[in-house]
């Protein structure tokens, strides 16, 4: 099933309640130069293929139209922009890398109401992310997804079709299976959670991360993110059961300064600078958990002031898709 992985979508919410503002600001962090100056259009969504911002120091050299499992070629930028600006001194060098496309939208291949079963072919280490990736196959289609802790080659994992209603009964999730958040029991540990239904996984994607289905409110599910904050989600958002593999990634020690150079990071200037918030956090009293409310995910029906803009590569303009 062909789909355009490089289609950038920008979802703009005319903020009315302060509750929605908190969620939008915390979840959607990508800056966009087109909408930067506007107070209402502050943040945007981006898909996985944008390669996690310019501070990775790498850029894709080829952009196929369809999804492939073929490793793609990356070019190191050295901290230089496409327009010729030098935006970072601390990028450059490092080992060569290949980019493996990861299918964040697990339910993309589900047709109708039949569950989609896949077999795990192999587990692989990806140099572009801390998590382990798994090659899964079904029919004549192969794709990469994020592996969970106890996943091994030969396992069969299932993706269930998205259920956009809050279910009164729930199913006990098996590890590696993908369900809607609304159909999982409270207390389930999940990863690769979608923020909006059908847009692809955004939360709990790093090594060893897991979110928790915390509680329910009418029409929405509250999911505790790895940071401790809670996000209010539409029950149709998909989530994978289990913890992301490679939980010992945080214990990894860089034995010498040169290891940073292997990752493409250059040394600091060496001059003494005044310390900022970046250098550490003062030990203070623990804050109460920040709760987010509002339901921006049903805004197609609820919020008449919604604007959905889509980037059109041909015309180089944002197209208004609100009526869709």
């Amino acid at each position: 099933m062909p789909f355009n992985v490089f289609q950038r979508t920008l979802r703009v919410v005319c903020l009315e309640s302060p509750a929605t503002k908190v969620l939008v600001q915390s979840c959607l962090f990508r800056r966009n130069p087109l909408t930067e100056g506007l107070a209402s259009n502050k943040h945007s969504v981006h898909t996985s293929a944008c390669l996690a911002g310019r501070y990775s120091g790498r850029r894709l050299a080829e952009r196929p139209e369809e999804y492939t499992t073929k490793p793609l070629r990356l070019v190191s930028t050295g901290g230089w922009d496409e327009e010729g600006n030098h935006y970072s001194r601390r990028l450059g060098g490092g080992n060569r890398r290949k980019y493996r496309m990861i299918d964040w939208n697990r339910a993309r291949l589900v047709q109708g109401k039949t569950p989609y079963k896949e077999v795990v072919v192999s587990l692989d280490r990806d140099c572009n992310r801390s998590a382990t990736i798994a090659l899964v196959a079904a029919g004549e289609v192969k794709r990469y997804i994020l592996a969970t802790v106890n996943m091994k080659p030969g396992d069969i994992i299932t993706t269930f079709p998205a259920c956009h209603e809050m279910k009164t009964y729930t199913v006990a999730g098996k590890e590696g299976d993908c369900h809607s958040v609304g159909s999982l029991p409270l207390g389930t540990l999940v990863n690769s959670v979608e923020v909006y239904p059908g847009t692809g996984a955004r939360l709990a994607k790093s090594a060893g991360c897991q979110a928790k289905v915390a509680r329910r409110v009418p029409g929405a599910v509250l999911v505790a993110m790895p940071s401790g904050k809670e996000a209010m989600l539409h029950p149709g958002c998909m989530a994978t059961v289990g913890q992301i593999a490679n939980p010992d990634h945080s214990k990894l020690k860089l034995t010498k300064a040169g290891v940073n150079r292997w990752f493409g990071i250059r040394p600091k200037s060496g001059l003494k600078k005044k310390k900022t918030g970046f250098d550490g956090k003062a030990v203070r009293k623990k804050k109460i958990q920040q709760k987010m409310a509002g339901n921006p995910l049903l805004r197609n029906q609820m919020n008449p002031n919604l604007k959905v803009l889509t980037w059109n590569e041909g015309t180089r303009l944002w197209r208004d898709d609100s009526h869709v």
Binding site: E118, V119, A137, A138, G139, E140, K142
Partner: peptide, 9 residues
């Protein structure tokens, strides 16, 4: 199952 024998052809 669930793979097809025609995978990769």
């Amino acid at each position: 199952y669930p793979m097809s024998p025609l995978i990769d052809v």
